[in-house]
């Protein structure tokens, strides 16, 4: 198995994190995304016509979106069946939060790319969109804590939805979005960081194992 990867890319981190949580052996091929923009070259578009990382290759199979990668890894390599649960309720919840993860990429993730790597776009608009999402996620997690639910979906364990949302939330400060007003998101970030097999990326630090 091979992951086409760029260290500082939020969605590549989601893929690396899932591989690490599942303990799936794989090789990594670094793509020079910044500053070289190697993901937009014809050579890379032959691998992923979308011109995007991450890309996961497993034998002859290739997945070129983070949603596809997480869903495939969970279905093919998760013997516990927990990461992409198979009940009607959880299928619906996971699909919903995967869509929110994509919205986080387009807002919080975009603000980060504009502020940090000088991508084109309106940083203020991206931040405003992200703040709206973070408020809703924080409320959802806060009520979850009251009800004894630790994760985005109603399962008693994390799902691929948590992993899809995690990079954009943990890296939000890069885009100028403070998490000071979102205490439930901060506690959920610490819970993700304490999962067995959790891995850091440059700019994300481990947390204590206490609590």
């Amino acid at each position: 198995m091979k992951l086409y990867d760029f260290e500082l890319h939020a969605e590549c981190y989601a893929a690396r994190l899932m591989l690490s949580l599942l303990g799936v052996p794989h090789e990594v091929e670094t793509v020079d995304v910044y500053p070289e923009a190697a993901h937009l070259t014809p050579a890379f578009r032959a691998i992923n016509p979308l011109g995007r990382v991450p890309v996961l290759e497993d034998g002859a199979l290739r997945f070129g979106t983070v949603q596809g990668i997480l869903a495939y890894l969970a279905a093919a390599y998760d013997t516990s069946g927990q990461w992409a649960p198979d009940t009607a309720v959880l299928r619906g919840e996971v699909a919903g939060w995967m869509a929110i993860a994509a919205e986080l990429a387009a807002t919080a993730g975009q603000a980060r790319l504009i502020e940090t790597m000088f991508a084109q776009g309106d940083a203020e608009a991206a931040r405003a969109g992200a703040e709206g999402l973070l408020r809703v996620i924080d409320q959802h997690l806060w009520f979850g804590e009251v009800e004894g639910r630790d994760w985005l979906c109603s399962a008693p364990h994390p799902t691929i939805a948590d992993i899809a949302c995690f990079p954009h939330l943990v890296l939000s400060e890069d885009g100028g979005i403070s998490r000071q007003d979102y205490p439930a998101i901060r506690r959920w970030i610490d819970r993700v960081k304490r999962l067995p097999g959790f891995t850091v990326m440059s700019g994300v630090f481990a947390t204590s194992s206490a609590l």
Binding site: E7, L8, T30, D32, Y34, E36, T116, E173, D174, M201, S202, G203, F205
Partner: peptide, 22 residues
Amino acid sequence: SDLEIRSFQQTIFGQDKPILEN
């Protein structure tokens, strides 16, 4: 390779960044 050198330095700078911003 240039890519290896760049990745090494970017990893280090990416670690410094949140510290600087806090």
